[in-house]
Design a protein around this nucleic acid. Structure first.
Lengths: 341, 341
DNA sequence: CTGAAAGCGCTTACAG
DNA sequence: CTGAAAGCGCTTACAG
């Protein structure tokens, strides 16, 4: 492995000082245009590669941003966060940052162990992607580098977070079902599991309220236990004409269950999901759902980190990014005749 | 943002030198046990965080490893590489490295632009995850830091690569179908698209040869064009009793198509996939497939990088990691009666 | 326009 | 066992 070329090597070759080389290569003032060109040419020829570490040492900024994803969101089927990570990675690169992924283990979360990337001053900022427990949020908020939360928020009023507009998305979707003529609409999701599920529920509920439809407690269906493990969905005695599911995966599970029971989707029952992930397009019928604007979310989170880097006290609060409805084949107008066998 | 505590701060507080602090904190020789303990205690109290950048500056190693994924493998539905990335990230962390993701754009690949993480000396090594064009492989091989390729290889004999044992997996799976009584077995996949598809085909073919079954050219079915875009699968006039698909996604597409045509899987036709990804478990029936050992692959790739770091000339060549068959419900013994309508 | 000096926070010889 | 000196490769502030 040949040792690396430094600015000093270039300087010596040209009989100038390394200060001048630094100025030339960084397009700073204080070098004649002639010399600058010559320096750049020689740098190129010698295969010079800029040493980011030395720069980091000087200005105290690594230009690395840590992205923390709690372990429980990283299972095989949960590709959403990895997609977000990818978008973040792209957005960071555009601003000259680099993302370092850290999977937060259940243990470290419980024991409130700060991520090693922080303890070793490996990163200038942190993006927490996915809900952690409250104590962990507080711990991470107390850190002396910028922190932005993604895809969740909680009662801590001083946290900066970027989430998809769950409330509006579910509201929009439910309005759509109602416009199609549905009056009996169930919601599927454990209201106590995550803030997303809660907010989507509230959006659904607002739509009911606005249209003067009564909320029916039997139409709020549980889909998972407290650890997030899916449980069998217990259907009510009277099947409603439409279901708003808190996510596409659950919508797909529900559809499979309904089909097994002899119902046809969307002829007998309409079902909508949320996320527009694989589960929306795999299987028949394709799901009408809300597509989350992952790239926009990533781009905003990165901008926030960047601005907080310049002014640590800057606050953005809770920012919501609107998604949009993707229309597929899982919704139709309800049958007017009684549909219970 | 309070300025950070340094070793010198600790040294001053205790009236010792920063050299001694460095030795104590790194558990090196040359400090009395007493003093070491005291130093560690004070470091803890003062909230000292080790500065990795300074260490990197000193020893010329950033401890960052770049992970390059070609853009075309990062679409919504292709979560496999992101899962590998996640495993890599974990393995790297265990050895004290940090992974930095770089999505290789189609343009940069064509123009042979080296990744910025390399040009800026941001990383000590590179893992290329997913096949690139040959010229790009050559360019990246010429770099003066360790490189390991994952999930593909090609004619360059000097490249170190870690792949899943595609050949053996498909061979194993085809043997299984034959043991179930199948004699007419088709292979689905564009043989010219990737080395994985090719090797899986060859494993399938070896199994046929070993069992004295004749290869039938009509039983080799195309699934995608040269850009990797899926095309409609053209079924042969006589439907075989079993299909070996090059991946789960294609297996699922094929099953849906067969069902549409009125066939039942596995009653009329058996289908197997490869990868054990979402497509294997989503939909009915569940796919019999080969599970790739992602964690083992990641762990080996990281070990190779680590060892090449110590000895740049070290070669490992092509290493294959065996997967294992996951038995689900997409295979049964063939009907003995004629099955063509 | 050009460059000598100092420093970022560590660690590695080496001297006492 | 303890520490003064030098250096990793840059950049900043200042002097000429």
């Amino acid at each position: 492995m040949k040792s690396n070329i430094t600015m000093r090597d270039i300087a010596e070759k040209l009989g100038v000082s390394s200060v001048t080389v630094s100025k030339a290569l960084n397009d700073k003032e204080g070098v004649s245009a002639d010399l600058k060109l010559k320096i750049k040419k020689v740098a190129e020829e010698m295969g010079y590669r800029f040493n980011t570490v030395a720069r980091a040492m000087k200005d105290g900024r690594s230009h690395n941003i840590g992205i923390i994803i709690p372990e429980r969101f990283t299972g095989m089927t949960q590709s959403f966060y990895l997609n977000v990570y990818q978008s973040l990675s792209k957005s960071l690169e555009q601003k000259g940052y680099y993302g370092i992924l850290h999977i937060l283990s259940l243990n470290d979360e419980k024991s409130l162990v700060p991520p090693r990337i922080y303890l070793e001053q490996k990163v200038d900022g942190l993006i927490v992607l996915g809900q952690t427990n409250k104590a962990y949020i507080e711990m991470i908020q107390s850190v002396n580098i910028p922190v932005v939360f993604m895809d969740f928020y909680d009662e801590h009023t001083d946290m900066d977070s970027v989430t998809t507009d769950n409330f509006y998305g579910a509201y929009d979707l439910t309005n759509y079902l109602i416009s199609k003529g549905h009056k009996e609409i169930a919601y599927v999701g454990n209201l106590y599991a995550t803030s997303s599920i809660q907010d989507r529920f509230l959006g659904y509920y607002k739509s009911l309220l606005e249209h003067g439809l009564k909320r029916n407690d039997n139409y709020i269906l549980n889909d998972r236990d407290e650890e997030g493990k899916y449980v069998d969905i217990e259907l009510p005695d009277v099947i409603p004409s439409a279901f708003v599911c808190n996510c596409d995966q659950v919508a797909r599970l529900l559809i499979n269950k309904l089909i097994e029971l002899g119902y046809q989707v969307p002829e007998d029952v309409s079902v909508v999901g949320f996320d527009n992930d694989v589960y929306a397009t795999i299987g028949v019928p394709g799901l009408t759902t809300v597509a989350v604007d992952v790239e926009e979310m990533a781009s905003i989170a990165v901008r926030f980190i960047d601005e907080k880097m310049k002014d640590f006290s800057k606050k953005f609060g809770r920012v919501q990014v609107k998604g949009r409805i993707i229309y597929r084949d899982s919704v139709s107008s309800p049958l007017t005749v009684s549909k219970k066998t």
